[in-house]
Nucleic acid binder design. Structure first.
Lengths: 148, 148
DNA sequence: CCTATATGTAATATATAAAGTTATATAAAT
DNA sequence: ATTTATATAACTTTATATATTACATATAGG
């Protein structure tokens, strides 16, 4: 049995799936075609609960809204040019892009004693670089990548 | 049962552990104190095989070398100012910082059909930002973080 | 106001990859 | 020769992301 001080970041597919469904929401809003979590799950090829869980996070972040009941579903709350990838990333992925810590190092070793604070400083810099890059990419830029 | 097209990237502790042991190799080389995989495992708090596996990768990348037998161990092949974090990252982590793909999307949906190439373009940009940042940080800069 | 349809979310199960462990071969110092 | 250390293959364990099941709540439309 062992434990981590901070949990190890596992880059999940959540960010990718979020971009996928946000794109669907944009196109559906434009063409007035309804998309519910079932339809999105069909496109992503997963379970609708997975989609709703993700949309729950995006909702909390103020990026989407929902309507219950028949003819219900989800829609974007922002124009794609006012929505950047950092907002989406932060909404659905809890952790850093790189994990700061691993197993509790041996504090009797001078390196082990200080490695965590040393790594922390570095990873903050790396995270910031990713943050800046993701902030610079808007959803509308992403949408331009689709050939239609 | 399901499968991924590309494997999901899981940021492991390998990068962190690598920086930890490279730091130890530097200090040991400086003070002529021998460090073998057992000693490094003790500092990291893991099994020596884990350390040797990692050092095997760093060796393949030309960053360290080893000596077998009694009084054997590992040593750095480069000066810390000529060694950047990207070299270490690339040596021990096989994958991208962000995964490009997830479950096979439904190609009958126009978004599902194109999402992978759309994401690919974005993630290349993000990866590049990380690469540039890691290239800009040398091991000697990391070592300056230790209070000795 | 009843029924069908959709979201909301908790609880549980499954799959997978990282990390840990065991085992064994090989090399070199004394 | 013996001891000490690397090299690495094979296997086991464990953590956690994702999938699934179950059930509660809201609302459109007859």
């Amino acid at each position: 049995m062992y434990h981590y001080i901070l949990h190890i970041m596992k880059a999940s597919s959540q960010f990718s799936v979020s971009i996928h469904i946000m794109s669907m929401l944009y196109f559906s809003g434009k063409s007035n075609l309804e998309v519910n979590s079932e339809a999105m799950a069909g496109s992503v090829n997963t379970h609708s609960v997975v989609i709703r869980r993700l949309l729950g996070k995006l909702k909390k972040a103020g990026l989407v809204a929902s309507k219950r009941g028949p003819k219900g579903g989800f829609y974007l709350l922002k124009e794609p040019e006012d929505l950047n990838l950092w907002q989406i990333y932060r909404a659905v992925e809890g952790t850093r892009i790189i994990n700061s810590s691993y197993r509790e190092p041996n504090i009797d070793c001078p390196v082990g004693k200080n490695i965590q604070s040393v790594l922390e400083k570095i990873y903050i810099q790396v995270d910031l670089a990713v943050e800046e890059k993701l902030k610079s990419i808007s959803l509308s830029q992403v949408l331009e990548g689709f050939p239609f």
